[in-house]
Design a protein around this nucleic acid. Structure first.
Ligand SMILES: [Mn+2]
Ligand SMILES: [Mn+2]
Ligand SMILES: [Zn+2]
Ligand SMILES: [Zn+2]
Lengths: 146, 146
DNA sequence: GATTTATTGATACTCAGTATCAATAAGCAT
DNA sequence: ATGCTTATTGATACTGAGTATCAATAAATC
């Protein structure tokens, strides 16, 4: 679902621009994360990676996930059963919806959240530098197929 | 900071009403979570508990944390370095602010969030049943002491 | 192509969280 | 109060996600 919005080239360029060497594992893992319909854990990504590159190391995947997260290309999903799954980051879209029925992630317009944050900043006095809004429920298609 | 709003009696009553037996560990742990100035992990709570009850078992603390979370008395903080810390749940106050400087948690008025959720529900078509908004930044007192 | 060095992958390790189970003690009945 | 039943505890062993290590590999630059 997010896949159509992600440009694999951009991710490779971002890694390149950050001074990292271009390797085969990078392309494999970027492809996996960019095209998954579901949030993926490093462990899951490892298993997927080994289907096309059987000797892929576990630590390598964890290292790559860390890189991608640090570069802001993927972001952690804070769900009920832990926070070890990742989805691609869509620029300007901070609000994440997770369907409790099918597990898929959807990105919602985050302008209302921006407004809320400024509002809360003014009323609380705290300086807010970052936010994570996680929404849970039943997605439109799961409502239809119910 | 949240401590002044938490009534230990209420928590004990909630556990009692749920059919759990009243034990000494319960009181100890409830006291620890209800009066901590900072989000606490089960591990941290265990260490604190052992100061007053040295033979407190580790598993016991994890089981109690699970109970308290299931009853909605404490809630998980989804922070940068994992989501294994807990704060007391304040009724009707869902928005959580964590100061990156001093680590303290603050609760913000959640009415704006309620509005945002209904708005997003209408525009996305998803049925939203739950939400977690986590705000990060620098609290008012840390801004003064800077 | 040779050199340099970041990256990889196999292995061993850590440690938060969990399963097990005998010992304990809360709740209830007498 | 006393004993009975059974939930809860705590010691121990275990699990498994995540990490440290390090020799082997392969980008990058010349
Ligand atoms: Mn989390
Ligand atoms: Mn602002
Ligand atoms: Zn769905
Ligand atoms: Zn602070």
């Amino acid at each position: 679902m997010p896949s159509k919005c992600i440009n694999v080239e951009d991710w490779l360029n971002a890694l390149d621009a950050s001074g990292f060497r271009m390797t085969a594992v990078q392309e494999t893992l970027i492809d996996i994360f960019a095209h998954s319909d579901f949030p993926l854990s490093a462990e899951q990504a490892w298993h997927v990676a080994r289907q096309s590159r059987p000797k892929t190391g576990r630590a390598t995947v964890y290292r790559m996930v860390e890189k991608l997260e640090n570069l802001g290309l993927i972001r952690r999903v804070h769900g009920y059963q832990g926070c070890s799954h990742f989805v691609p980051t869509l620029p300007e879209l901070m609000m994440l919806f997770i369907c409790q029925s099918c597990g898929r992630a959807d990105y919602l317009d985050s302008q209302p959240l921006q407004d809320l944050i400024h509002q809360s900043e003014d009323s609380s006095g705290h300086h807010i530098t970052d936010s994570r809004l996680q929404l849970f429920g039943v997605c439109t298609s799961c409502q239809e197929n119910a």
